[in-house]
Nucleic acid binder design. Structure first.
Lengths: 153, 153
DNA sequence: CAGCGTATGTCAGAATACTGACATGAGTCA
DNA sequence: TGACTCATGTCAGTATTCTGACATACGCTG
């Protein structure tokens, strides 16, 4: 912070760079997913379900970083198109565990290949050690940002 | 990549973590900017103009990672509310250089303090060296992601 | 048991950002 | 000069996501 009242120097701000990186990643993902007729949120939902079958709408929303309302309309679409199934009524409480259909699994496979290629490209030029370091740094930032939120609630 | 066809392990994916960090940062910024009646994009625009007066609509859009159409409606709002001024017609070409008004500068000052506190909180627990390392890693990722885009165009 | 706080699924409306399209001006090149 | 390409500002329509609100279901605590 060498400047007094000149605001935040965007060229040196980690926050700005984080936003820039995230934007570049999202754009790159959109590019490879578009030919498959799939959006990033769309893909995120399927990938989450593949790894943790039975996740509820709200849990999927948190995992994809959208509101549960947004995830709900997406799930309804995916359900209508036959990629996902949910029981008609909850076995316990209101939670409706969602699962991939075989069709959904097939659709996801192609998308995963595409997304993996983007991630590989993103990490090109970084050593394993650098990647591990970046991983820890991002985790540290996330943890620090969330500490205060919990206090507030 | 130790797994065969099980998709991308979200718990170990730098891409997922990047999205998570960016989401946490955006949420934290929204929290501190809301009391000031300002959105993140709103703030980004003002901050960009403070540091690089005379930026055009399209340049601002690129700097804030939105389309120029989106930035255009935002600029029209900011202009109507007296935070920004643009000449009625272009001196050369179609480019209309935008500038902050004194009112816009005052509004930005408060927002900058709030946003800076978020960035400070995010970096708490990281040494200068770690921050520098993270900075280089993010720059590397951005560069790698963009290389291919340029080839495609 | 009754009350309270919390979490969920869902509907509806508002805000936000995007894609598509058009006209205009600058630069390049034959 | 004329044709072509590219970038810009802007309008319109669409899509996506969010905020607000409600009913319901669980767990805890007195």
């Amino acid at each position: 912070m060498s400047q007094k009242g000149a605001g935040i120097d965007l060229d040196k701000s980690l926050g700005y760079l984080l936003k820039e990186a995230s934007s570049a990643l999202r754009t790159a993902m959109e590019e490879v997913l578009r030919p498959l007729g799939m959006s990033v949120t769309h893909y995120s939902c399927l990938e989450l379900l593949a790894q943790r079958p039975g996740l509820s709408n709200s849990e999927l929303a948190r995992g994809a970083f959208v509101t549960r309302q947004t995830m709900n309309v997406l799930l309804q679409t995916l359900e209508r198109e036959g990629y996902v199934t949910r029981p008609a009524e909850a076995a316990v409480g209101k939670v409706l565990p969602a699962r991939l259909t075989p069709s959904g699994r097939r659709s996801l496979e192609k998308a995963t290949v595409a997304v993996r290629s983007v991630e590989v490209r993103m990490l090109a030029g970084m050593t394993e050690a650098e990647q591990a370091h970046a991983f820890r740094s991002l985790q540290s930032m996330i943890g620090s940002l969330r500490e205060r939120d919990e206090d507030a609630s």
